[in-house]
């Protein structure tokens, strides 16, 4: 069993935190993992992506081949579409619906929504709003992790453990808020077809 995940977003939106939480989650499950990311120039408000591969077998390539991703998990709607060539025919696109507007020529939001809706498998969620209800908009990345959790081959409890590991240093309050965000994301996605 393997799960190949493309994480997408804009520098500073916390996709590497999602990757770290999944990474910790796999440790408790004795799985093989490879996670590739780009640093440096790409962190300055530019498009960022990370390839995350989980498997019960050793993983060869650090990069996911095109057409092989089981999941595109994006914290920004336009960025979710950038990596479509990586998605496999049965794969799912899970994205936050709130655009990150730092460029002058951002497409119409409806155009983006329509393109997402045209896919056979997708989840479109306002993660910012859900995160705000959980205590802070900063947790919208973890809301998205929760929303995508059923497509990731790991028990939900392992993801909870991953979130605890990632935020442990920041204190109980932050951990509790992010666990709430994780669950809220999962529930919000469960309501979608």
């Amino acid at each position: 069993m393997k799960t190949d995940i493309i994480l997408a977003g804009v520098g500073g939106q916390g996709i590497l935190t999602i990757a770290a939480a999944i990474g910790f989650a796999t440790l408790s499950e004795k799985m093989f993992v490879k996670q590739s990311e780009l640093h440096g120039m790409s962190q300055r408000g530019g498009a960022v992506q990370s390839h995350l591969r989980l498997s019960d077998q050793p993983v060869a390539s650090d990069l996911i081949p095109m057409g092989c991703a089981d999941l595109i998990l994006s914290v920004e709607p336009m960025e979710s579409l950038r990596y479509l060539p990586y998605l496999n025919p049965g794969g799912c696109l899970v994205t936050n619906s709130v655009p990150y507007l730092n460029i002058p020529n951002y497409p119409e939001e409806k155009t983006i929504h329509d393109a997402v809706k045209s896919l056979p498998n997708y989840i479109w969620i306002n993660a910012d709003e859900i995160a705000r209800e959980c205590g802070s908009i900063k947790s919208s990345n973890i809301v998205m992790l929760g929303a995508a959790s059923r497509f990731i081959n790991l028990p939900f409890s392992a993801l909870q453990e991953g979130v605890r590991q990632v935020f442990g240093r920041k204190g109980d309050e932050i951990v509790t808020m992010n666990l709430k965000a994780l669950e809220a994301g999962q529930q919000a996605a469960a309501l979608k077809p």
Binding site: G46, M66, L84, P85, P107, A115
Partner: peptide
């Protein structure tokens, strides 16, 4: 990339759906 290497070894290139043309590039700033 695994894709370039596949083609070099004579295997068929796979790909998912095309990215829509309306996507704007988002350079670092």
């Amino acid at each position: 990339t695994p894709d370039a290497v596949a083609v070099a070894m004579g295997l068929a290139a796979q790909t998912g759906p095309d990215a829509p043309e309306f996507l704007a590039s988002r350079p670092p700033s």
